[in-house]
Design a protein around this nucleic acid. Structure first.
Length: 396
RNA sequence: GGCGGGAUGUCCGAGUGGUUAAAGGAGACGGGCUGUAAACCCGUUGGCUCUGCCUACGCAGGUUCGAAUCCUGCUCCCGCCA
């Protein structure tokens, strides 16, 4: 059997930080000695049901714990979501209804199930309303554990406090509630992104106040989005959803700047290709590995072939959606037809034509001619830019 | 409770009476180039029946030949003092 030390090293290999250093090994050794599983916690925000590669970094790490025989405890933050987080001043987050929270949690669970082992012996799903719906006296006991000074140590709070940006009392309470989750489920280990470091560490303090052993903390680096700079997030549109099609996953991965590849290989736990391989080929390997993980190896090969055909050889895809148009007046007004076919505005369609961005059966359309003969478009492949295609068919 | 600041296009952010569909940036899109949907360069970026017309600078009114810009009221947000 592997030693606790080597398991810990393995788990740490692509992590950001283990806090305190060595704590993970201690927990692993303890579990072994007592012959029990570790309870490994991950908190979920039930507002975002679409999970993307960024979320999988942490999930993949959880899976590694499961594969070592430990038990993952996912906590759906239904109570905290119900309170509604007024973070920042711009947009107030909508307060979710119970139904939405449950739907989101189910959806998340289904998606996370692609990565986690849902064997009930190694997997547990809990809602934090179960324990956070507490009498005021208990809430006060929780509040007694932490001081304002402690909370203001957190960088973003500190900056906002200094800069005069509002900090809602609720926001200050969040870390406490998250920490209490660890108390409630008796977490041995908590995993999270580096942006969660403060909150997870506060969980240790809170556990101590409740007379419990403090959890080990393992933070994972943040996966950059396909822009290679910012954190992957749906709001920024730089995500790869795990429910995306194979072609889209492949293509979006190929859009990743070269410099960001290393980050992706490490965090997604994909073996990096040998030295000396060109960046393009490395990126192809990355894209294939990602597609393979979610769609299987056949789909990965197909996605590569499709990508090469469309973007390297500039061939027209074989499978095209068709669009039926009609020409009652004997002529077709291009901006209108393109707008209907591709879901863009007529002005935008007009600009595309004028910029030489529209092709019919491979030939660039004349920039000046906005009304065309129906015969030109009938049963023709109309292409906008490099990646939008439709087969036009004349309606009788 | 008192005082002050703010609300602009997808986002950030200039703009204090006219040449402003509104600087600049980001993002997005198109073109070129290429090893990719990388990078880099150029262009476009409210809508439309498009040499013009319509709609737009928190909301509702008003002043003016003319307002994002001035006035009044309202809504929301923020800071400071208490």
């Amino acid at each position: 059997m592997e030693s606790a030390a080597s398991k810990s090293a393995q788990l740490n290999r692509n992590g950001a930080e283990e806090l305190p250093a060595g704590s993970l090994e201690e927990k692993l050794a303890l579990a072994e000695k007592e012959g029990r599983q570790l309870r490994v916690k991950l908190g979920l925000d039930p507002t975002a049901p679409d999970i993307h590669l960024g979320h999988t970094v942490v999930l993949t790490k959880l899976r590694e714990f499961q594969d070592l025989g430990h038990r993952v405890v996912l906590i759906v933050g239904d109570y905290t979501a119900r309170v509604g987080d007024p973070s920042g001043r711009s947009e107030t987050r909508p307060v979710l209804s119970d139904e939405e929270i449950i739907a989101n949690a189910n959806s998340y669970e289904a998606q996370a199930g692609q990565i986690l082992d849902r064997d009930p012996d190694r997997y547990e799903l809990r809602f934090n309303s179960e324990w956070l719906e507490m009498p005021t006296a208990e809430l006060l006991a929780l509040l007694r554990t932490t001081t304002v000074a402690q909370l203001l140590e957190r960088e973003d709070f500190a900056n906002r406090y200094k800069g005069g940006t509002p900090i809602s009392l609720l926001e200050l309470l969040y870390p406490l509630m998250q920490g209490y989750d660890s108390v409630a489920i008796q977490a041995d280990v908590e995993i999270g992104g580096t942006d969660q470091t403060f909150n997870i560490l506060l969980g240790r303090d809170i556990q101590r106040h409740y007379g419990l052993p403090e959890q080990a903390v393992l933070t994972m680096p943040i996966l950059t989005g396909i822009d290679g700079v910012e954190k992957m997030s749906k709001t920024k549109g730089n995500e790869i959803a795990i429910e995306a099609s194979a072609d889209e996953m492949f293509g979006r991965t190929m859009r990743l700047p070269d410099e960001a590849m290393e980050n992706w290989f490490a965090l997604l736990a994909i073996p990096a290709p040998a030295d000396g391989i060109g960046p393009r080929d490395a990126k192809v390997a990355l894209a294939k590995a990602i597609v393979e993980r979610f769609h299987g190896s056949g789909a990965a090969d197909a996605a590569e072939a499709q990508f090469v055909s469309q973007f390297v050889d500039h061939e027209t895809p074989e499978q095209l959606e068709s669009f039926a148009f009609s020409a009652p007046d004997g002529a077709v007004h291009l901006p209108a037809a393109l707008a209907d076919a591709f879901g863009i505005s007529r002005s935008e369609a007009r600009r595309l034509v004028e910029q030489g961005g529209v092709k019919v059966d491979g030939a660039v359309l004349d920039a000046k001619q906005l009304d065309v003969d129906p015969g030109l478009l009938s049963d023709a492949v109309v292409q906008i830019g490099r990646r939008r295609f439709k087969r036009f068919e004349l309606e009788p």
